[in-house]
Amino acid sequence: MILLKLYDRIILGLAALGAASLAVVTVLIIYDVLSRNLGWTPLNATSAIVEYALLFSTMAAAPWLVRINGHVSLSSVIKLTPRAVQRGVNRLVLLIAASAVGILAVVSGRIGLRQWQSGTIDMRSVDLSGWLLYAFMALGFALMATEFLRMLLRGEEYTGAGGEH
């Protein structure tokens, strides 16, 4: 049970980190504009960090989005079928989704590992480690997979209707 609680914390904590990284992006770009025009010391890292934050925030929030039904899905057509069919199809959707993003997590992990071993560098406005982006994806996709599985095991349905503010 402690493990489950820890897991929940990770899902929420990552989403919070994703949100925080967007705040960092805003501040960095504003600093960049100000420094360029006021002659302050510029930060070469800005554009590299912003670019990485785009993928990081996406992958960090994606598992939480699964949990709150935040990834858009279309339900109009399947809703026309009998309830039992809807349920069955939804089970299948969850299973396929979990397997697919699970595979993507494994493959991302493999590329990341190889890049880590070979010391590949991603040359942006500053040099960053090549494995980093793949680590983001491996983590994001893996936790998306466990979130889809969690829904499946708890008998919940994915509705994609989480667009509430």
Partner: peptide, 13 residues
Amino acid sequence: MLFGMPVAVAFLI
């Protein structure tokens, strides 16, 4: 998509 797969995941699959 018509089966209700999240749009992003449908593209990935």
